[in-house]
Design a binder for these strands. Structure first.
Length: 107
DNA sequence: AGACCCGGACGCG
DNA sequence: CGCGTCCGGGTCT
């Protein structure tokens, strides 16, 4: 079931193009929410994957964050591969080029 | 009402 | 840097 909050998150995420990423915190601010964790939950249940690019959302400390509800294992590797195919690389478990993080318009 | 969750900020060693 | 801890808020049961 998709809620108004989830739709807001997905809509904001659509502004992130291929080759760039954003963070849970950034998304949260974009929709006027102070819980980045709530955003993570919404992405986890993203019914419109991959048209809503939930793989382009990482942690604000440049760690990859999770994917499909998991923070490690095959799911996470799939996320890293998707990003790699878009030119976004990770090294030593961290985003290689932090300047690829996109800031979103405030709420 | 309580528990859960793909985070974040802060404090400490 | 790598913990531990607390906070947060939307959703599910």
């Amino acid at each position: 079931m998709t809620t108004p909050f989830e739709r807001k998150v997905y809509a904001a995420l659509l502004h992130v193009p291929c080759g760039r990423v954003t963070t849970y915190a950034e998304l949260a601010r974009a929709v006027g929410c102070r819980s980045s964790r709530a955003v993570g939950q919404a992405l986890k249940r993203n019914p419109f994957a991959p048209v809503v690019p939930c793989h382009r959302v990482i942690s604000s400390d440049f760690a990859p964050g999770g994917f499909r509800g998991r923070m490690r294992g095959p799911a996470l590797r799939a996320k890293l591969l998707l990003l790699k195919s878009e030119g976004v690389l990770f090294r030593r478990g961290r985003l290689a080029e932090p300047e690829r993080v996109m800031s979103l318009p405030r709420f």
